[in-house]
Design a protein around this nucleic acid. Structure first.
Lengths: 222, 222
DNA sequence: TTAAATGTAAATTTTTTGTAAAAAAGTATA
DNA sequence: TATACTTTTTTACAAAAAATTTACATTTAA
């Protein structure tokens, strides 16, 4: 991941550069905002900009504005000015976060991660064994390949995945599906499980994923 | 936009509720995290959670974790504890931002906006696949050529474009159009989607752009 | 061995969706 | 204001998809 750091306090610049490099980021540091803007507009290989507000030649807000004209790269403001007015202006001009100096480099790092996670849509994606649940997409991937599930199949499978190795009774399943008030009869559930198994290429006699618990219900083997 | 506020300090709760309501947000306030979690898991109509860390019964971090199991809703931590360790933990558990009390409500507001903007892809240039949104002209260009959309078609399509690959329920669509005061019935939405598809030369049986998610809603394929 | 429970193919029912066409609501124009 | 035009919503019905039930074979525990 490539970070553009625009910071004219060379001591701070070096500190942040070292810290980020130690955390596997590639850092391009600039003390001149004009040169930084030139670099940004000629290249397109940056993943995040860390921007100081007090800069020579050009005001940090202007830099922010100018970046937004050419790119939607995440921008974190790193500034000694921490009053509300500056924050309002920064967010107004399109910044994603604002850190008031002095701050722990670690905090910069976790805020960067939060932004990346949000941008990449990684929030809410859960990995359970070889299955990946993306609730926003309403999709479950098995080893990266999407399963073609109907709505109830999807919801039953999510319920199972969320309770690995626990026996879920048919009653529990029927009562805990997300969304409307389903009222699934036992045999309907059996049918859905059967269809789920076939889509997972699972075999009820020696199940890899969904085990029948005789007299009770089903269990996901996690 | 619907905000879930989980805060047991009733004074703070009222202050934030009033402030946010004055800024056109619908606020559901909870002082009991268990009840809040129940509400979150049974409904799916929230756009953001503001979460205090010090709560009765359940630790705020646990609440955060539990929310992440069922939703990718943006979470902003609002806590009296402001040390680095708490921040690290909060972001670790999937929070999007962290405000240490006391803070100006205005700062909460601008940080919320920054998150929404980022989620909706409203930052900077709006090019989504072969579509380019020109909000000033109220136009959507496909490969440079403007689509002839009516107002509601335009707004529905923007909503879809801003959530690529995500399943949007009819309820969500109806509740999140720009004008905000629409109250589209399900079949009206279907009709608009049908008209949109025909203008995009899309085919519902093997859609290139708008896929129907049976029993739920629609999804833009991005 | 037997009665209860489960698996599942096939049939059936229910729900949801697509869309044409009509009706209603909203805008613009003369 | 009256009129034509546009947009939006509703209605209605066919088609599609999903969910459920049925029926019978199979499996299981006692």
């Amino acid at each position: 991941m490539k970070i553009y750091l625009i910071e004219d306090d060379l001591e701070m610049q070096e500190l942040l550069t070292d810290y980020l490099q130690n955390h596997d980021y590639t850092v391009f540091a600039f003390d001149d905002p004009v040169i930084a803007l030139e670099a940004l507009s000629s290249r397109n290989d940056y993943d995040l900009v860390i921007l100081d507000l007090m800069l020579p030649k050009l005001d940090g807000f202007d830099v922010c504005k100018k970046i937004r004209l050419i790119s939607n790269v995440p921008i974190i403001i790193s500034s000694a000015r921490g009053n509300l007015g500056d924050k309002v202006a920064a967010f107004e001009y399109g910044a994603d976060d604002y850190l008031a100096k002095p701050y722990e480099p670690k905090e910069l790092l976790i805020r960067m991660d939060a932004i990346f996670r949000r941008i990449k849509g990684l929030v809410g994606v859960q990995q359970i064994g070889e299955f990946q649940i993306d609730e926003r997409k309403m999709e479950i991937l098995q080893d990266g390949y999407p399963l073609e599930l109907t709505r109830i199949e999807y919801e039953i499978f999510i319920l199972l995945l969320h309770h690995p190795n626990q026996v879920l009774s048919r009653e529990y399943i029927s009562g805990h599906l997300k969304g409307e008030n389903y009222n699934l009869k036992d045999r309907a559930i059996d049918m859905h499980i059967s269809n789920l198994r076939s889509k997972l290429f699972d075999d009820f006699k020696s199940p890899k994923y969904i085990k029948s618990i005789w007299g009770v219900g089903y269990k996901f083997i996690g």
